[in-house]
Simulated assay, not measured.
Amino acid sequence: MAEHHEHEESKGESLIDKISEKIHDHHSSSSSSSDSDDEKKSSSSPSIKSKIFRIFGREKPVHKVLGGGRPADVFLWRNKKISATVLGVATGLWVLFELIEYHLLTLVCHILILSLALLFLWSNASTFINKSPPRIPEVHIPEDHVTQVASALTTEINWALVVLRDIASGRDLKKFLSVIAGLWVFSIVGSWCNFLTLFYIAFVLLHTVPVLYEKYEDKVDSFAEKATAEFKKQYAVFDAKVLSKIPRGALKDRKKD
């Protein structure tokens, strides 16, 4: 009986050992498969990210595209108080000049008159009330900053002139049609509103479009990808039916010869 009992115990222990070994092997195989899946996902993630379509071929974040620093923080509402203040001041100026029809020169003159009158009265009254006169700071514009702004502006104007010259030479028909269409749209918008209103609209768009695009970036890029593909398809049809039948200019023929 004792031998039979010991035989049953050894048999039960061997059965338990086999079950535990199977569970251990299954766990190790599942963990190794999960690790291999993770490696595949991690190896494939860069290729997936590289294939994501971005508007205008953008590779940098929206904050870097806007130049970074404080201006980008204002446009992307990193500090809501500052952004709201800037937008509120711009709206107040637009209402003042456009709706109330207040003139810029008149506003500047009235502000100078009020400021000079207050400072003059304060300086003369300080001797009677035994208080120190106001400290008027010395304001001067640094020459380096003005030179940098003028240099950057000159560079942009020269670049625009080079682009216009290149378009007028008839080398790129696609760019020519794009510029003509853009100028035509601007002419229509200019007939609807004056320069101040147009500038204010652009200012409001800078404070709304970038932050909305950053919030819904993936959805906008997906829609833009489909729209770009459809535009390329329609342009290919237009090129085959219309543009390819237009006679080439003498400038292109001379270059090929």
Score class of each variant (00 low, 15 high):
residue 63 H to G: 00
residue 64 K to M: 11
residue 64 K to A: 15
residue 66 L to T: 10
residue 66 L to R: 03
residue 66 L to A: 13
residue 66 L to M: 10
residue 66 L to E: 15
residue 67 G to H: 07
residue 67 G to F: 07
residue 67 G to V: 03
residue 68 G to K: 05
residue 70 R to L: 14
residue 70 R to P: 06
residue 70 R to A: 14
residue 70 R to T: 10
residue 70 R to W: 00
residue 70 R to E: 02
residue 71 P to S: 05
residue 71 P to Y: 04
residue 71 P to L: 04
residue 71 P to V: 05
residue 72 A to M: 00
residue 72 A to S: 15
residue 72 A to Q: 04
residue 72 A to T: 03
residue 72 A to Y: 01
residue 73 D to M: 08
residue 73 D to C: 14
residue 73 D to I: 00
residue 73 D to R: 11
residue 74 V to L: 08
residue 74 V to T: 09
residue 75 F to N: 10
residue 75 F to S: 10
residue 75 F to T: 00
residue 75 F to I: 04
residue 75 F to D: 06
residue 76 L to H: 09
residue 76 L to N: 12
residue 76 L to D: 08
residue 76 L to Q: 09
residue 76 L to C: 11
residue 77 W to F: 00
residue 77 W to Q: 07
residue 77 W to V: 08
residue 78 R to E: 11
residue 78 R to K: 15
residue 79 N to D: 15
residue 79 N to I: 04
residue 79 N to K: 12
residue 79 N to Q: 11
residue 80 K to W: 10
residue 80 K to I: 03
residue 81 K to T: 09
residue 81 K to P: 00
residue 81 K to E: 03
residue 81 K to Q: 05
residue 81 K to W: 14
residue 82 I to E: 06
residue 82 I to S: 09
residue 82 I to D: 07
residue 83 S to R: 10
residue 83 S to W: 04
residue 84 A to P: 06
residue 84 A to Q: 08
residue 84 A to D: 12
residue 84 A to N: 07
residue 84 A to L: 11
residue 85 T to D: 08
residue 86 V to S: 03
residue 86 V to A: 06
residue 86 V to K: 01
residue 86 V to W: 02
residue 87 L to M: 13
residue 88 G to F: 11
residue 89 V to L: 15
residue 89 V to K: 09
residue 89 V to C: 10
residue 89 V to Q: 08
residue 90 A to P: 00
residue 90 A to V: 04
residue 91 T to L: 11
residue 91 T to W: 07
residue 91 T to E: 08
residue 92 G to I: 09
residue 92 G to D: 11
residue 92 G to A: 14
residue 93 L to P: 03
residue 94 W to A: 09
residue 94 W to G: 07
residue 94 W to H: 15
residue 95 V to Q: 04
residue 95 V to H: 04
residue 95 V to L: 09
residue 95 V to E: 01
residue 96 L to W: 13
residue 96 L to I: 00
residue 97 F to K: 03
residue 97 F to H: 11
residue 97 F to N: 01
residue 98 E to F: 14
residue 98 E to T: 11
residue 98 E to G: 06
residue 99 L to T: 10
residue 99 L to W: 13
residue 100 I to V: 11
residue 100 I to S: 02
residue 100 I to P: 03
residue 100 I to Y: 08
residue 101 E to W: 01
residue 103 H to I: 00
residue 104 L to T: 09
residue 104 L to E: 15
residue 104 L to Y: 02
residue 104 L to Q: 12
residue 106 T to R: 07
residue 106 T to I: 02
residue 106 T to V: 03
residue 106 T to F: 04
residue 107 L to K: 10
residue 107 L to F: 07
residue 107 L to R: 10
residue 109 C to R: 12
residue 109 C to P: 00
residue 109 C to S: 14
residue 110 H to D: 14
residue 110 H to G: 07
residue 110 H to W: 14
residue 111 I to T: 13
residue 111 I to P: 02
residue 111 I to M: 13
residue 112 L to E: 07
residue 112 L to P: 00
residue 112 L to K: 13
residue 113 I to S: 14
residue 114 L to D: 02
residue 114 L to H: 11
residue 114 L to T: 08
residue 115 S to G: 01
residue 115 S to Q: 13
